[in-house]
């Protein structure tokens, strides 16, 4: 079901913000959809922490791991990142579910790889496959993703991203060589978590709780500045890429899964308009679904 007038407005919003974007939104209960490039193959980056979260809970449900099991995080050899365990200095011991909290709430890369080590890439791909996500695949760990990015950027570090030749050669931005999905696959996954289909109801509730604890206000949530509307989600970023997939819940019971993936023309790290358009596009899509 394609709704073309909505697609035109959504694409105009993307263009105004200086990005190219792909979106899919679905009404979790009626199944109605809004498609603006829903089947475009996209790099997930940290959005792939959502499939990892789902795989973790499915493994727990199958009895192959215990979420209260302690995991040991040594001070060295951590997957780099600016938040959570990745930014902490000392040895830590925490439960798998608390590592999952850090992974989802602040996109902690170290916590994500601790969990991935325990769960395994194959289980992540098995989970998405079993839930009917035919175009979603994890090819590598977050450490490997960042190592490839670092290698391609070169020794100069992030300032080399100002060079368009450097941006053009980043393997991390190529969906064929990176963890990838489509907007439609991601809303399918979110809907299965909200419909208690991704795991049993207790596990799905635990996942919804974590997605609701994500701290970032600048992307999807920025499109819904309404105190009675709840936004839960998971972001993902790489140079020029800004993504978020999430669920928007209205007090009248309406619930909508939205996936937005964008690529900016500018390699600048700070592009507030590019972050905010994820919220604008999501709101346009949700409005379209609610006006039916």
């Amino acid at each position: 079901m394609t709704t073309n007038p909505h697609r035109t407005r959504i694409e105009a919003a993307f263009a105004e913000a200086g990005v190219t974007g792909w979106l899919h939104a679905r009404d979790i209960d009626s199944g109605a959809q809004v498609d603006a490039g829903a089947d475009h193959s996209v790099v997930t980056a940290s959005v792939h922490k959502l499939p990892l979260l789902v795989a973790l809970h499915r493994e727990a449900e199958a009895g192959r791991l215990d979420l209260t099991e302690r995991t040991h995080c040594p001070p060295t050899g951590r997957t780099p990142g600016p938040t959570g365990l990745a930014a902490m200095l000392d040895e830590a011991v925490l439960s798998l579910r608390d590592a999952a909290y850090l992974m989802v709430s602040v996109s902690d890369n170290t916590a994500a790889d601790l969990l991935l080590e325990r769960v395994g890439l194959d289980s992540v791909n098995a989970a998405t496959r079993e839930l009917g996500l035919t175009r979603t695949r994890a090819l590598h760990t977050f450490a490997e993703f960042l190592a490839a990015l670092r290698a391609d950027v070169g020794p100069e570090g992030p300032s080399a991203l100002a060079d368009p030749q450097v941006v053009a050669r980043l393997r991390a931005l190529d969906p064929r060589r990176s963890n990838h999905s489509t907007p439609r696959d991601m809303t399918r996954l979110l809907a299965s978590v909200w419909r208690d289909e991704a795991a049993n109801p207790a596990h799905c509730a635990a996942m919804r709780r974590l997605l609701g604890l994500q701290v970032w206000p600048h992307r999807m949530a920025s499109g819904f500045p309404f105190d009675d509307v709840h936004v839960a989600g998971k972001t993902g970023s790489a140079p020029t890429l800004r993504n978020e997939v999430g669920v928007v819940e209205y007090p009248d019971g309406g619930r909508y899964a939205v996936a937005v993936f964008t690529r900016a023309g500018s390699p600048a790290a700070a592009l507030p308009a590019a972050d905010a358009v994820i919220g604008t596009a999501a709101r346009l899509a949700v409005e379209a679904l609610r006006s039916r």
């Binding site: 980056a45 990745a86 602040v106 570090g157 080399a160 991203l161 100002a162 600048h218 970023s237």
Partner: peptide
């Protein structure tokens, strides 16, 4: 030839670290 700009400070919300 093009010169890269000065220092670039990634912010925590960038999620990646290089």
């Amino acid at each position: 030839p093009d010169l890269p700009a000065g220092p670039l400070h990634l912010r925590p919300s960038s999620e990646y670290w290089i």
